[in-house]
Design a protein around this nucleic acid. Sequence first.
DNA 1: CTGAAAGCGCTTACAG
DNA 2: CTGAAAGCGCTTACAG
Lengths: 333, 333
Amino acid sequence: MNEPSTRNPTLDDVAALASVSTATVSRYLNNPKVVAAATAERIREAIAQTGYIPNMLAGGLASSKSKMVSVLIPHLTDSIFNDTIQTMAEELAGAGTTVMMGLTGVAPERTDEMILAAMGRRVDAIISTAPLGPQTRELVERFPGLFIQIWELPEDPPGIAVGFSHRDVGRDVARFLQSRGYRRPLLVTAEGARARIRSDGFIEEWQALGGGEVAQAQVDIPSRFGHARRIFADMRRMAELPDVVVCGSDYLAQGLIVEAQAAGLRVPDQLAVMGFGNSALAGAMRPTITTVDIDGSRIAREAIAAIRHHATGAPPLARSIDVGFRLIERESA
Amino acid sequence: MNEPSTRNPTLDDVAALASVSTATVSRYLNNPKVVAAATAERIREAIAQTGYIPNMLAGGLASSKSKMVSVLIPHLTDSIFNDTIQTMAEELAGAGTTVMMGLTGVAPERTDEMILAAMGRRVDAIISTAPLGPQTRELVERFPGLFIQIWELPEDPPGIAVGFSHRDVGRDVARFLQSRGYRRPLLVTAEGARARIRSDGFIEEWQALGGGEVAQAQVDIPSRFGHARRIFADMRRMAELPDVVVCGSDYLAQGLIVEAQAAGLRVPDQLAVMGFGNSALAGAMRPTITTVDIDGSRIAREAIAAIRHHATGAPPLARSIDVGFRLIERESA
DNA sequence: CTGAAAGCGCTTACAG
DNA sequence: CTGAAAGCGCTTACAG
């Protein structure tokens, strides 16, 4: 039961105990069906007896497949990406691949650092939610694995992209709100390229449809519940109150509903609120929040499918995968 | 400018270009001050020219220091651990260490899998929020790195523990609520060992202080905003309405406030609500949420300090680090 | 301050 | 189906 155990058992120990070569043990580990049943049995026993745990650093070095994937997100708290990451981590873990998490924050140089770190670990893929600057792009071009940009669809992605059109989201929301009869929207935009594109899309369509001026307010990224107090306070100082507030996240939308109600306004009658992301709370809030559903799990699954496809050596099936979005009408707008 | 670049540049390429041995380049990379200034300069240039990115798989294998840390949490969404993970990832990244994220879910066997994966990658430390079963414990005992259990303080942790006493939290909350004059608490407990210990502490103290029966309700883990509807509906069917609901998270507390208000109850006058975790929304909600603050960032920093200390080869300074907690009185209870 | 060389623990053609 | 052997790209005593 108790080995001398001064050091970790290695492949050699297992091979010796099973009276086979290390090559055979390695094959058993990576592709069990190529070894004879009787041999496999002996190896299995030897592994159990030694308590062998394969050293994936060595394996990765020898095979130049690290079975690691780097996932880059700006932050964790109130993150709209959580479903994507969660699905990613779960599905990959099932396949023996682990997720290396990189928090890029808002500063673009952090993204470069994290990509460098990922490349240093020879990850099989980098999945990034961060829009790339020109410098980062150069770096990524040298990455031998698969680079997947998610949650947006740039014109000319360095690797492949899995996401949806933020401009179309903005447009659809504009069309929806006008058809509902709203006339004085307030657009609360977080810093960041994607939010800006949604806003542009909104304004474009809003005015193309004959809508008037669009009021705007800024919050820092990510747009959170806590932003609502200031936004609402500022709003009350406007010459004319907006009739609908378009938020960059369901969290902020929730915050605005709370503020409005605390001030005695009925939602949506006196103030409508629209969210983004369809997080779980959107359907559970009172009133339930009208929002835009993004299938974050599907983004993860498409990314993983692309990674698996890439692993076969085949060229990508598509450079851009559009998972679309769905406007969900509920009570708040 | 454009190398032939059929393969990644290696240490050898850099060494050759700088006319030094690979040993010297390696030293420059890991401990720059031991190489002569002039040599360092040549190496720096060679690195820039080749675009060399060190292969940390090889480095880790040779040095048996992977510069990776595995962080195990049950899930990402609405997670009370987000601050801890965020701080951890940020501080470690600054030191060139990366975080390998393991989502253990609720099933204990997933935890074992993730620990095995971490050991296979020869991580320097495993930081886990999951309470350990006997089987896992055996596994952990063989882990040569530092095992850190966080968010709780078990009697006899396999490595070290950084957390606080959940029992004391329960007791303090009981004492606080009785002193505030509440008499009919409803305890909403999530599944999971820690929540149970807080509940036990609460009930113990509540009754020691002469309080009567404590009503209880169950939710699955983690306790979320969305649980509130059912809990509130069930509550209304109780013979006598509770006067305070003690929640396992601020999210659930928020949900109950929303439900109560939607039903026309004033919080806290007709129904008080108490949260747990002091997430950002607790201070921003209306009414603001009375809760228990856990300094998640500090837990991360203490864990990192322990890892650094461990790296020097010294024995741990303490097996248990209690970061405490703070009851924060706000408006909701 | 620097170099030659062994070694870390695997994988993978190649040959049988 | 299996083995011998080279090689993956680093680090680190050891010696100078």
